[in-house]
């Protein structure tokens, strides 16, 4: 167990932790990951890759939540609780999404997103 009683260590952690730029670094990183996910979601033609892009976007949101939880709410870490819930919902979404993909593949015999156009005017 970490002994956090020493004042020197406390002040060291304070000075380490309250570097004001670190939060911005994490937020910029998650913004970049989210934009890559959006690009993949729109431009992919393989349906499995679309599901992977959705996972990328969910991970970007998780990274955002964790960064806020650490830098803005370090004592009552509600962001970590939200991240665990998001991971749970993402697991359910991946299972159902891949099952839907298998059903579509059985019906249409392709995974090309451009040919899933039964509902297109």
């Amino acid at each position: 167990m970490v002994d956090r009683a020493g004042f020197a260590e406390n002040s060291l952690q304070d000075s380490l932790h309250n570097q004001p730029m670190y939060l911005q670094y994490f937020l910029l990183l998650s913004a970049a990951l989210f934009c890559i996910g959006v690009y993949g979601l729109v431009t992919s033609r393989n349906a499995v890759r679309v599901l992977m892009s959705i996972e990328l976007m969910l991970n970007a949101v998780n990274l955002n939540l964790m960064a806020f939880s650490n830098y803005l709410d370090g004592v009552t870490i509600k962001g970590q609780v939200f991240t665990v819930f998001v991971i749970t919902v993402a697991a359910a979404e991946a299972a159902v999404g891949l099952a839907i993909l298998l059903a579509i593949y059985r019906n249409r015999d392709t995974v090309d997103m451009e040919q899933f156009n039964l509902l297109k005017w």
């Binding site: 956090r4 406390n10 952690q13 304070d14 932790h17 309250n18 004001p20 939060l23 911005q24 937020l27 910029l28 913004a31 970049a32 989210f34 934009c35 890559i36 959006v38 690009y39 650490n70 830098y71 803005l72 709410d73 370090g74 004592v75 870490i77």
Partner: peptide
């Protein structure tokens, strides 16, 4: 997507974040 990233980056850099002073557990 590049425009979205620029927008988000501007928001992240210009917002004054209310950083917590407590030591994180």
């Amino acid at each position: 997507c590049a425009g979205l990233f620029v927008l988000l980056s501007t928001m992240v850099v210009t917002t004054p974040w209310d950083l917590s002073l407590a030591v994180p557990i």
